[in-house]
Design a protein around this nucleic acid. Structure first.
Lengths: 338, 338
DNA sequence: CTGTTAGCGCATTCAG
DNA sequence: CTGAATGCGCTAACAG
């Protein structure tokens, strides 16, 4: 391996001078810079990151932590899309991105500990937010730079997070269904542990209340993602005495499963039942019918969270921030007026 | 930050002893190990990875490199699924996984150079294989440990790679269509630069030839993924004088787009046209009709590639290997006999 | 079984 | 503007 010393020797200067031209230190004359750079090229020199990290106390790397449902999580196009956003700013800043590989909650916690204690990364982005999350606890306790994509369960004021106004979005999309003449509207969400489920559900309830529509828990369903989840949800809906004519589904991927089961059950969308959803992942325009859904601008969530993290990581005193990405409703073919 | 020295002082031993208990060196008495460990706990000591990396000349990290079509690539459920496989073995080995963030070919090459030159990772997994790939060139030229998921365009014998027998798979799935009485069968593939497209297409041709069925380029279509790609392909097919009754599509995601356009065009699957496909991502059982497709065992591709890489990274003289993951055909509802 | 010494490759004082 | 010296935190001979 060719080191800074070799370059120094080859160009007849001292190691510290070489170090300075690497850092493009203005106190070095253009001339020596030129000659040193030439030597670096000639020898094929490249700085050793580990050595640099050691003295710089920074690795210029961040970690993105996926939720523990690792088997299914990455399958949700939401994650690739946030990662793409994060990757974009990370790349521009010449940082690297580590992806968590743990499958269970404990594995993930262990991994985060390794990364943080070992100073493997300068900061962490949490790609989920759920009730009473051990990783979040750990991070705030150790005062380690991190940002949450979503809304934290606690530490509302201490943690930096990037989120949508999911309550408002839930309210709007439900109101839209109501405006279209629907009165019997059910909510289908993922795990109630997820803050995002809670918020969208809260918005749904607010809209019903505002419209003076009675509602009780009969119309609230919580399910897994994809086909298996769709099955249970649809069977339940069909068993209802008064079947809903509208469905507010908290995630496009759940909608996909539901649409699938609905078709198998011979229930037509949107003729028999209207469906609205959230996220606007690429799948939602491929489904049949194409989904009317809330576009939460996932890519932008990624961009902003990465930016915020870099700021935190590079400035001890950066204050906690809350960043809300606006949403828009994308109208397609899964809704029909009553 | 609490270092090895602090622990040494606290437990009344020398730094090297502490280092040894970290490594669980058998030449240290259980007694001192115990006391040192107690001190580590008490002080909250954790080894600094950068320092360790510097002397160990290894980072216990690998990088996964995505193809440059970054905007769409991660959208293909193939990638999350390989990553899951890779992550699983990487995690068990206590390694970390870096994900590439470059969007264009050049950006990716730059990134790989940074990672390799800076000794940021111990090895690289290429999640694609295409014609004349600069990254591959670079890696072999520098004799850096890497493995390819797919078949390399060159360096067949020097490079370690994990692949399916895509030619055979293409032959089998096409033969299946022929057995079902189809005679006019078209092939729809992704970019011809991708080795995987080439191989599956070659298998398709072999099957036709073996069955004595004439074929020419009229029946070979190359397209983008998803809806936009589906549009062009379907329009083309409909414009054909003799429309095919069977479609061999080289990727489930392309099938998804095609299915979508086919329905819009009023062509029924499988009644009017049968469709078979490759990969068996989770989407293929959600489509309507559910897809008959070749299961290439993506997760296993990930597992094996990661294992092979770790071997290469930890053993200078590990020979190049070719690992073929067997495939199976999953029969669902997109094929009808003629 | 344990301590001493040296050095990994780089950045950064402090001199000059 | 540049060099010499020092140390980042850890591991690995080499002694004992």
């Amino acid at each position: 391996m060719v080191t800074i010393k070799d370059v120094a020797k080859a160009s007849g200067v001292s190691p510290s001078t070489v170090s300075r031209v690497i850092a493009d230190n203005p106190r070095i004359s253009e001339e020596t810079k030129k000659s040193v750079r030439k030597a670096m090229k000639a020898l094929g020199y490249h700085p050793n990151i580990s050595a640099r990290n050691l003295v710089a106390k920074s690795t210029k790397a961040i970690a993105a932590i996926m939720p523990s449902s690792a088997n299914t999580a990455l399958q949700n196009p939401f994650f690739p899309e946030v990662l793409r956003g994060i990757g974009s700013v990370i790349h521009d800043a010449q940082y690297s991105m580590l992806l968590s590989t743990g499958q269970t909650d404990e594995e993930i916690l262990e991994e985060v500990k390794r990364l943080v204690y070992g100073r493997y990364v300068d900061g962490v982005i949490l790609l989920y937010s759920r009730l009473d999350d051990a990783v979040t606890h750990f991070l705030v306790e150790h005062d380690f730079p991190f940002v949450i994509v979503g809304k934290p369960f606690e530490y509302e004021s201490e943690a930096t997070y990037v989120n949508n106004d999911n309550v408002k979005a839930g309210r709007e999309i439900t109101s839209y269904l109501i405006e279209q003449g629907h009165e019997h509207i059910a909510f289908v969400g993922g795990s109630t542990d997820l803050i995002v489920t809670q918020d969208r559900e809260a918005g749904y309830e607010q809209a019903l209340k505002a419209a003076g529509i009675d509602h009780d828990d009969t119309y609230k369903i919580h399910t897994e993602f994809l086909k298996s989840g769709g099955r249970g949800a649809v069977e339940y809906i069909m068993s209802l005495e008064k079947r809903p004519t509208g469905l507010v589904v908290s995630d496009d991927l759940i909608s996909l499963g539901i649409l699938n089961r609905l078709e198998e059950a011979g229930i037509r969308v949107p003729d028999d039942i209207s469906v609205v959803s959230f996220n606007n992942v690429y799948l939602s325009e491929i489904t049949r019918p194409a989904l009317t859904t809330v576009d939460i601008h996932i890519y932008e969530l990624g961009i902003q969270s990465a930016k915020a993290l870099l700021e935190k990581a590079n400035n001890e005193n950066e204050p906690a921030k809350r960043i809300i990405i606006p949403h828009t409703i994308v109208h397609r073919d899964s809704v029909q007026p009553r």
